[in-house]
């Protein structure tokens, strides 16, 4: 998970937000099962080379959103909550769909063209996944 989580300190989006968003994607995609431990603030800060306070802020946001739970003395774990996962899934999907629509409109394409492109990409990835 650490390898997948990427942070760009030079980017416009605050680092804590990048971390929070990145983790939300992972959690929404089900990369971590409910009850599984997440890296400690210190470890993640080390790996991403960012201020631990920043990681702590991201974690706090996730705890408040109900994604993570802190158990004193044990660490931080994924909270099993189907409701928020579905909500976040839909939100992530909506965000990406919005980006696709914006691009399509800027390029002056028709909606059907965009839908066709999406269907093609979807099947291709599905086939790749099945082949593995």
């Amino acid at each position: 998970m650490r390898a997948i989580l990427q942070v760009d300190p030079a980017g416009a989006v605050p680092i804590w937000k990048q971390i929070e968003e990145g983790m939300r994607r992972q959690l929404a995609a089900g990369a971590l099962a409910p009850g599984a431990p997440v890296p400690s603030v210190r470890d993640l800060a080390r790996d991403l080379r960012v201020n631990p306070a920043t990681v702590a802020k991201a974690y706090q946001g996730l705890v408040e959103a109900g994604w993570l739970v802190v158990r004193r003395g044990e660490g931080t774990f994924v909270q099993g909550d189907g409701g928020s996962r579905d909500r976040d899934r839909r939100r992530l999907l909506a965000e990406e769909a919005g980006r696709l629509a914006a691009l399509g409109l800027a390029l002056g394409l028709a909606r059907t063209e965009a839908e066709a492109a999406l269907a093609e990409a979807w099947t291709e990835l599905e086939q790749k996944g099945a082949a593995r």
């Binding site: 603030v41 210190r42 800060a45 080390r46 080379r49 960012v50 201020n51 631990p52 306070a53």
Partner: peptide, 8 residues
């Protein structure tokens, strides 16, 4: 970073 994480 380790120092920050450990002792703030």
């Amino acid at each position: 970073l380790d120092e920050l994480a450990e002792r703030g």
